[in-house]
Simulated assay, not measured.
Amino acid sequence: MAMPTGYDCDTRFIAAHHQPAVLIDLALSRGIDNHQLLRGSGLFYEDVIGGQARISPRQFLTLIGNAQRLLEADDSSFLFGQRLLPGHYGEVSHALTHACTLQQALEQLQQFRALLSPLLTPRLLLDERRAYLYWTDNCGIGNQQRFLTEASLTAVVAMSRRLSGERLPWRFHLAYPQPRHVEQYWVHLSEQLTFASQMTMMSLPLEYLHKPWPGASATAGQVAQQASCAQLESLGWPGSFIDQLYDHLYANIREPLNLERVAQSFEMSPASLKRKLHKHGTGFQEQLDQVRKHVALYLYQMKGYSNDEVASYLRFNDTTNFRRSFKRWTGLAPSSLRQLFQS
């Protein structure tokens, strides 16, 4: 049976009056000319306020690049993020607003990612003590990676604070060196920061997932969730093609995986899969290595596996070969990772 496909970087499905309008309004509030802001995006301001225009991830990324260049401010991504969630995106925003707990909100963020987070995919992991939220690139975001990362982290922090009524004790790991504007991270996120980590993610103690949120309406939330499911069904997919590939690789990571086998699962030729990935600025080996890296880090840090156990889980017959591969994925030997997720 064919794997479900998802949207591509050139699929026009993002409502221009939703997340793009949030960024447009931020730029306009700082005196940016809308013609300069929208240049090269294939979008006109009249289209946005008309409420019918749909743009592709690639067009949205052009808009973001323009905004970064024209705003020239270290706080732009954080201010954008503060306005993103729950948002004003119709029923899906109502569903998020009436989430009864943080866990329900994060599950909705994952379920409705095409509507709430169309450029970066949120993924939730739990262990015995903590909840971890991390993001994966789902459409080839390229130079906008850090801007979108800062915005996504801020969006979840601001949403959880607004809906819970308290500042939650989030900790953050960032997969890039400390930037010069670190004070923006202190103001908008937390001082609990670790830069140059292997993954970008945020975490907090598990008990905060289940604390009831004071302003929630379970009935209104359920109605809005049903309407959001119908909207997602009308799109024909829950996420991007890169999402589907990640999920397939993750679910089958212990099986022999290569370009030919995976292409067959998606009922396409290896050449077609290769072209599709190239269009998104990536390749099969890069995607496979990313999933192997994420699984290995999970097994090391959350399950306490040894080198031999991780190598065996990932079907490496030779531990030396596994260590060599792990260093290629991460730049580090497995023995260097023991402090990775500790503050």
Rank of each mutant, 00 (worst) to 15 (best):
T5G: 10
Y7V: 07
C9M: 06
C9T: 12
D10Y: 04
T11K: 08
I14F: 02
I14D: 03
H17P: 04
H18S: 09
L23G: 00
L26N: 00
L28G: 01
G31L: 10
G31T: 01
N34G: 01
H35N: 10
Q36L: 02
R39E: 00
G40Y: 01
G40N: 03
G40S: 03
L43R: 00
V48P: 11
A53K: 11
P57T: 07
R58Q: 14
T62I: 01
L63M: 00
D75A: 11
S76H: 12
F80G: 07
Q82D: 07
Q82R: 08
G87C: 02
G90M: 10
S93W: 02
Q108V: 08
L109V: 09
Q111D: 09
R113L: 08
R113V: 10
A114M: 10
L119R: 05
R123E: 12
L125F: 04
L126R: 13
D127T: 08
E128S: 10
E128F: 01
E128I: 06
N138K: 11
Q145L: 05
R146P: 07
A151C: 09
A151K: 05
S152H: 15
V157S: 01
A158E: 06
R161T: 09
R161L: 03
W170V: 05
R171W: 06
F172L: 14
P177A: 14
R180D: 15
R180L: 13
Q184A: 14
H188W: 14
H188I: 00
L189N: 02
S190Q: 03
Q198M: 02
L204N: 02
P205D: 15
E207V: 11
K211C: 08
V223M: 07
Q226M: 13
A227M: 14
C229R: 12
A230H: 15
Q231F: 13
P238G: 02
F241P: 05
I242Y: 15
I242G: 06
D243F: 06
Q244F: 07
Q244M: 14
Q244S: 15
L245H: 10
Y246R: 15
A251N: 07
L259N: 11
L259E: 15
E260Q: 15
E260K: 15
F266P: 11
F266G: 06
E267D: 12
M268I: 11
L273W: 08
K279E: 05
E286A: 11
D289N: 05
H294C: 05
H294E: 04
V295D: 02
A296E: 01
Q301S: 03
G304F: 04
S306A: 07
D308I: 10
E309W: 03
L314H: 04
D318C: 11
T319H: 13
N321D: 12
S325N: 07
R328Y: 09
W329A: 11
F341T: 13
F341M: 12
Q342S: 12
